[in-house]
């Protein structure tokens, strides 16, 4: 394969390309070798940290088919229009599982939440596959709950309402 240089590239990807190829040596072959060299280099210089791989293996414990999944349907980080000049705006999240919604406000000082339709619930704040002792909160008869422990890193809420167990989608606080 030679002379196939016009790749239809429209210039968006990197507009600083110079015409730096020198000869039409077997390019396809060369590219594969170079990519393989990079693959060997990254295995030495930037591999997956062992502790992270181990955490991912342990995450199998989070596979819970008995719980209902409450999907993230609103995240102020993505869906809200930022207010000019506003700092320290709380992160607003909404999770939805069927007819049930859970609104959560995450601030540096803790969690504030509302279950709709309003109902009491026991709530665990999960931080990983093996939480030593998960923070537990209680939603009152109006479905309101609050926790004064700050949340950071990956987290999910496990709610027990009536006969149901509902877990919110994992996300990073």
């Amino acid at each position: 394969m030679s002379g196939v240089r016009d790749d239809g590239f429209d210039g968006r990807f990197d507009d600083r390309f110079e015409d730096d190829e020198e000869s039409a040596v077997d390019e396809e072959f060369d590219a594969d070798i170079l990519e393989e060299e990079l693959r060997q280099a990254v295995a030495v210089l930037d591999p997956v940290p062992d502790e992270l791989r181990q955490i991912a293996i342990e995450a199998f414990a989070l596979h819970d088919m008995d719980a209902k999944l409450a999907e993230l349907t609103f995240d102020s980080l993505v869906d809200a229009i930022p207010v000019r000049g506003a700092v320290d705006v709380p992160r607003m999240l909404t999770f939805t599982a069927g007819d049930l919604t859970v609104d959560v406000e995450v601030t540096p000082h803790g969690l504030l939440g509302q279950i709709l339709p309003p109902q009491p619930a026991g709530i665990e704040v999960l931080g990983g596959p093996h939480p030593a002792a998960p923070t537990t909160l209680t939603a009152d008869g109006m479905g309101r709950f609050a926790g004064d422990a700050g949340v950071s890193g990956p987290f999910a809420l496990r709610l027990r309402t009536g006969g149901d167990v509902i877990v919110t989608e994992w996300l990073r606080a």
Partner: peptide
């Protein structure tokens, strides 16, 4: 991010 991705995948 890495952890969140795997936790969500398990879920």
């Amino acid at each position: 991010v890495y952890q969140t991705v795997w936790f969500r995948f398990a879920q």
